[in-house]
Computed example of a mutant assay.
Amino acid sequence: MLSVLSPGIIADAGATGGPVLLSGLTAAVSLAAGVRAIGALGFAAAIVFAIAIPRLKYRRNY
């Protein structure tokens, strides 16, 4: 039986929901707030990659 929250569905929800949330924030507040939100998300992604990539460095793909 397939799980309801499979990784594909979660990725699709994130890819779809991100722009919707950002456009809602921009419409509610201002364009500057939207730019700041994108910058904050970029820094958050950089932190995640800085933590995750060194852990995966020695993992073999076979």
Rank of each mutant, 00 (worst) to 15 (best):
1 M>L: 10
2 L>W: 06
2 L>Y: 06
3 S>I: 13
3 S>V: 10
4 V>W: 05
4 V>N: 08
5 L>I: 12
6 S>V: 12
6 S>Q: 08
7 P>E: 14
7 P>R: 15
8 G>Y: 02
9 I>V: 14
10 I>F: 05
11 A>S: 10
11 A>W: 03
12 D>Y: 13
12 D>C: 10
13 A>L: 15
13 A>S: 13
15 A>P: 00
15 A>N: 09
15 A>R: 13
16 T>W: 01
17 G>P: 02
17 G>Q: 13
18 G>I: 07
18 G>C: 12
18 G>K: 12
19 P>D: 11
19 P>W: 03
19 P>R: 04
20 V>Y: 02
20 V>C: 00
21 L>H: 07
23 S>F: 11
23 S>L: 13
23 S>K: 12
25 L>Q: 04
26 T>M: 14
26 T>A: 14
27 A>L: 14
27 A>G: 05
28 A>V: 00
30 S>R: 11
30 S>L: 09
30 S>D: 15
31 L>E: 12
32 A>F: 13
32 A>P: 01
32 A>C: 07
32 A>Q: 15
33 A>V: 11
34 G>R: 14
34 G>D: 11
35 V>N: 00
35 V>M: 12
35 V>G: 01
36 R>F: 04
38 I>W: 04
39 G>P: 08
39 G>H: 03
39 G>M: 09
40 A>R: 05
40 A>N: 03
40 A>W: 04
40 A>E: 07
41 L>Y: 02
42 G>E: 04
43 F>K: 02
44 A>G: 00
45 A>R: 00
45 A>C: 04
45 A>S: 05
47 I>Q: 02
47 I>C: 04
48 V>T: 07
48 V>G: 01
49 F>D: 00
49 F>R: 00
49 F>I: 00
50 A>T: 07
51 I>N: 01
51 I>H: 01
52 A>S: 06
53 I>H: 02
54 P>V: 10
54 P>M: 09
55 R>P: 01
55 R>C: 01
56 L>Y: 00
56 L>E: 05
56 L>W: 03
57 K>A: 09
58 Y>H: 13
59 R>A: 10
59 R>W: 09
59 R>I: 13
60 R>I: 10
60 R>N: 06
61 N>T: 12
62 Y>W: 08
